[in-house]
Design a protein around this nucleic acid. Structure first.
Lengths: 119, 119
DNA sequence: TGCTGGCATGCACATGTGTGCATGTCAAAC
DNA sequence: GTTTGACATGCACACATGTGCATGCCAGCA
């Protein structure tokens, strides 16, 4: 009755794959990390700048950056006293864009009203 | 020194956007939901079939299906005594593929060894 | 060498969340 | 109408996780 099949790239998706996907996608599962990545998409910056931009305490930003680093989303290297962070590569930006495009797509068809929209 | 800029589609990504993205992407942030979606990508199926496929208790599957429904990922309609679930549209499958493609991409460059691979 | 700035790390805690178990609900079969 | 099958819901709990606070570490500067 009109489901979306797709049949995909044939990939059966093993249990290990599922766990891996979940781990990686969990990077985008919290507003703070999304904001950090979004800010980094506009250009590399230091931890302090990020903290100001996303309005978080510096340690909190460092913690999230560590997670994003372990997941291969960002990459930081020292420059004097600062550590400059940036997106690992353009593929990360692409994934972010895909996510944004997805919610935009949902906003169009708006299936079930996100549960909260009370401003 | 070689960061990935991108400058994106100009979207500044508001705080609300970040929260929305996080909410939506959290659907892919757990292995069980990824497995459910992966199974559904191969074709629609009933809750019982899903439970068997992903090796979860039926109530657990129902709970996750409810989440996936609220997020607009899946869609279920009754057929006799069964409720047949399927991906909401091909865009969901596309997002899943993008996620799989991403981890595959990481596996190639393998930046920081996912912290656990001891199996 | 001592001091300050910039990040990272440890620890503790509050919160969110996935799952098991029991139960409720609805449709089909008798 | 009663019973059975399939799924949904409520509740409780264990667990993971994000953040604040204090502290440690390292580079640059006087």
């Amino acid at each position: 009755m009109g489901f979306a099949h797709h049949a995909g790239p044939g990939t059966p998706v093993t249990t290990a794959d599922a766990r891996h996907v979940a781990r990686v996608m969990s990077a985008l599962a919290t507003p703070s990390r999304v904001r950090i990545l979004a800010r980094l998409r506009e250009g590399a910056s230091t931890v302090g700048e990020l903290a100001l931009a996303v309005e978080m305490e510096q340690p909190a930003v460092s913690h999230q950056l560590r997670i994003l680093r372990d997941l291969g989303f960002v990459l930081g290297n020292r420059n004097g006293r600062h550590v400059i962070y940036g997106l690992y590569d353009s593929h990360v930006a692409a994934l972010l864009d895909e996510a944004l495009r997805h919610i935009e797509h949902l906003r169009a068809g708006d299936t079930t009203t996100p549960t909260e929209e009370h401003a």
